[in-house]
Nucleic acid binder design. Structure first.
Lengths: 149, 149
DNA sequence: GAAACAACGGATACCGATGTCTGTTGAAGG
DNA sequence: CCTTCAACAGACATCGGTATCCGTTGTTTC
């Protein structure tokens, strides 16, 4: 399993929070659920992991809600994956063989490693800053006359 | 969901069949299940998809079993994924927004596309030939005096 | 300090993917 | 033919991720 539903929810929530980072305001769970299209009663579970991992600050009570704990530039998608109890499975053999390793590879080892390497590289190099910049781009595109095609 | 359990089973089974391709022999479901570490009663479901997709030849009765329908070089991992009722989700928005597209992207669109592009590229360029060659490598390594480290 | 607010946390329910079982169909051997 | 073998096909069971519910804890406001 390379990516599950919960991880995708986490990405969405973080993307919303990243877009809201500059304002400094907190976003309530209910709002966040709506904006990120996450089931309202499930979001607390998703957010919990992100809070425990230190990626998100939570505040209870009046005026409470969620906010990124640090700048979007400093949060990679890998951070989010790690927070969502997702293990990269880098070292797991595609056949489930315990003895599989680079020196004694199973027949799928090479192809498998390439795939995971590729995904991991993406997750490590991509930060929430890219998400935010896209929102800016989006806003700009909407306000400008869109270039043809 | 980027990759499910069934798809992994399919990879394993195909890897075994690829390793057996040169011999021209068929592999029975029971053997295949054991070699590929697939639940014995589940394998028929997995193989069925591969047969219907034309990647594998099945023969019933005495001396029957499974065999690749064409050379490993001509079967990509993408073929296997397609066979396993896996949709690449290339065009699905990360937020599930219907209106999301390159001209009107959601905030995750870019990062999401990169990930899927990366996985798809891997699946398209990797063939079962690479799997087989690794098996050869493995056998060679075992028969030779292993180099230090 | 009482009331409203909102995250926390566990118990439980649900559902789809996975796994199991059983009988059927088709092919080969004698 | 008849028997044996092995894939096929569908019905059914199980399990884990997902989703829901509800009471609790902590914070702010008045």
């Amino acid at each position: 399993m390379l990516l599950n539903h919960t991880a995708e929810y986490a990405f969405r929530a973080m993307a919303i929070l990243a877009g809201n980072y500059d304002s400094g305001e907190r976003v309530r769970a209910k709002e966040l659920a709506e904006l990120a299209a996450i089931p309202e009663h499930y979001i607390s579970k998703v957010m919990r992991h992100l809070v425990v991992a230190g990626l998100v600050e939570a505040l209870r009570g009046h005026g409470g809600g969620f906010r990124l704990a640090r700048a979007p530039e400093c949060i990679t998608f890998m951070d989010v994956l790690d927070a969502s109890d997702w293990s990269s499975e880098d070292r797991r053999c595609a056949f489930g063989f315990g003895a599989c390793n680079p020196k004694n590879p199973c027949s799928l080892h090479n192809a498998w490693s390439q795939l995971h390497g590729c995904v991991n590289q993406w997750a490590r190099k991509t930060t929430l800053a890219e998400v935010r910049s896209l929102e800016h781009l989006h806003a700009e595109l909407a306000s400008q006359a869109p270039p043809k095609e």
